Simulated assay, not measured.
Amino acid sequence: MKPNYRRCISCRKVGSKDEFWRIVRVFPSGKVQLDRGMGRSAYICPQTSCLQAAQKKNRLGRSLHASVPETLYQSLSQRLASSNTQNQI
Rank of each mutant, 00 (worst) to 15 (best):
R6H: 03
R59W: 12
R40L: 08
D35L: 08
R36H: 08
C45T: 02
Q74N: 11
A42P: 02
R22T: 11
S67L: 06
L80M: 12
I44N: 00
K31Y: 09
K13T: 11
R22S: 05
D18Y: 02
S77F: 10
R79I: 10
K31T: 07
C8T: 01
A42Y: 00
L76C: 09
N4G: 12
T48Y: 08
H65N: 14
R79N: 07
Q33R: 03
I89A: 13
Q33G: 08
S29F: 01
P69K: 05
P69A: 14
S10Y: 00
R22I: 09
Q78E: 13
A81V: 05
K2G: 15
R22G: 09
V32M: 12
I44A: 03
R6E: 03
S29I: 01
N84D: 08
A53N: 12
V32Q: 06
T48E: 07
D18P: 02
S10L: 01
G37R: 00
S75M: 10
K17Y: 00
N4Y: 02
L80A: 13
N87A: 14
S16A: 05
R7L: 11
Q86H: 11
L34A: 10
W21L: 12
K17E: 15
R40Y: 04
T48L: 15
Q86C: 11
S82C: 10
T85P: 06
F27M: 08
L72D: 07
P69C: 14
G15Y: 01
P46G: 04
I89M: 02
